[in-house]
């Protein structure tokens, strides 16, 4: 339980999708002009992340990972379908988004009016696919993956709503003409990211990078092992 809480808080504040990884920036910048639309898209992202991350976890652990197919037969223990992860993940995301859109349109027209227009946008939101692509590098259990998905969604929601609130106030500011719109928004996002960094216990970015590298090295060792195996198979 402590572990889950840890992942939850971490994915909302410290590893925030926007401010730590800069995932989902396109729609983040595009919809943050008005508070209401920002909140709508934020809700949709929480919903979609909270469901597609566990779905992708299942796909990864029971289909793509090396030896994941052993639940069918022991003979498949050496099969590694990780090459296909991009196609499988994006297909799951796109199909789920399409299904949700159709279901929402049929059963709840009022929700569709407030949320529906954002759903197609979400299929190409980097944060959804990015969250799925983090799964192979992190050894989550199913329930941890669910927590991670929900937490990341809430983190994205917070980020987009706060930026939209700032941008609504910005309408009254006298910004130099060429800086208006995108330019000043980027600078604000940068400053907000500094603010969110303080959630990491005032850690310097260097330290974060070291941690990331340690993580990367760990995963690369794994993949090196995989490569050795495949090379061995090949030479046979």
């Amino acid at each position: 339980m402590e572990n889950l809480l840890n992942i939850f808080v971490k994915s909302i504040f410290i590893d925030n999708m926007i401010f730590a990884y800069f995932l989902g920036m396109c729609s983040y910048l595009a919809v943050s002009k008005k508070y209401k639309t920002a909140a709508g898209l934020g809700m949709a992202v929480i919903f979609v992340l909270g469901i597609t991350i566990p779905l992708n976890w299942l796909a990864y652990n029971f289909l793509l990972k090396e030896g994941a197919l052993t639940w069918i037969s022991e003979d498949f223990a050496s099969i590694d379908l990780e090459v296909l992860k991009f196609i499988v993940f994006i297909a799951i995301v796109a199909a789920f988004v399409q299904l949700t859109e159709m279901a929402v349109e049929k059963f709840s027209p009022s929700l569709y009016n407030s949320l529906g227009i954002f759903l197609p946008l979400i299929a190409v939101n980097c944060s959804i696919l990015g969250g799925a692509l983090f799964l192979p590098t992190r050894d989550y259990e199913f329930i941890e993956a669910l927590t991670f998905g929900l937490g990341s969604g809430i983190g994205w929601f917070l980020a987009v709503v706060s930026l939209a609130a700032i941008r609504e106030k910005m309408a009254y500011a006298d910004v130099p003409k060429p800086l208006r719109g995108l330019g000043i928004t980027f600078i604000i996002v940068g400053l907000m990211a500094f603010g969110f960094m303080s959630f990491g216990g005032f850690e310097l970015p260097f330290k974060n990078k070291e941690q990331q590298q340690a993580e990367l090295e760990k995963t690369s060792q794994d993949t090196e092992n995989v490569e050795e195996v495949s090379v061995a198979n090949f030479s046979e």
Partner: peptide
Amino acid sequence: VMMSPAGACILLGILIW
């Protein structure tokens, strides 16, 4: 600051300007 993504954000803002 420049190594962190936040620095990149501000740099991109200035570049756009």
